[in-house]
Amino acid sequence: MMTCKELAELLQDFLDGELPKEYSDLICHHLRECGPCINFLESYKVTVTMCRKLPPLEMPVEMKERLQAAVREFEEKMSGGSKNSGEPGA
């Protein structure tokens, strides 16, 4: 019989349907006998689903302001070139 650890190693391929039938049969057989592995498989699936639903992280307000200013400043430098800044030497 397949061990719980071996099942864990093959879990991803099993869930992706990429496992040869003989192996997925072994997994199904193991799952019929092993409660912990059923919980393990279900919680693995929940972990995956949950992270797919994470909202984007929110940028701190001050950082947003700093970045916005940096982009603006960079744009001015690019579009204005050096024509509006005084010559450093003179």
């Binding site: 061990t3 719980c4 650890k5 864990a8 393990f40």
Partner: peptide, 13 residues
Amino acid sequence: FTEHGYHAQSIRP
């Protein structure tokens, strides 16, 4: 996992 391939902790739902 243990050396015999069992879950080392209890796995609850």
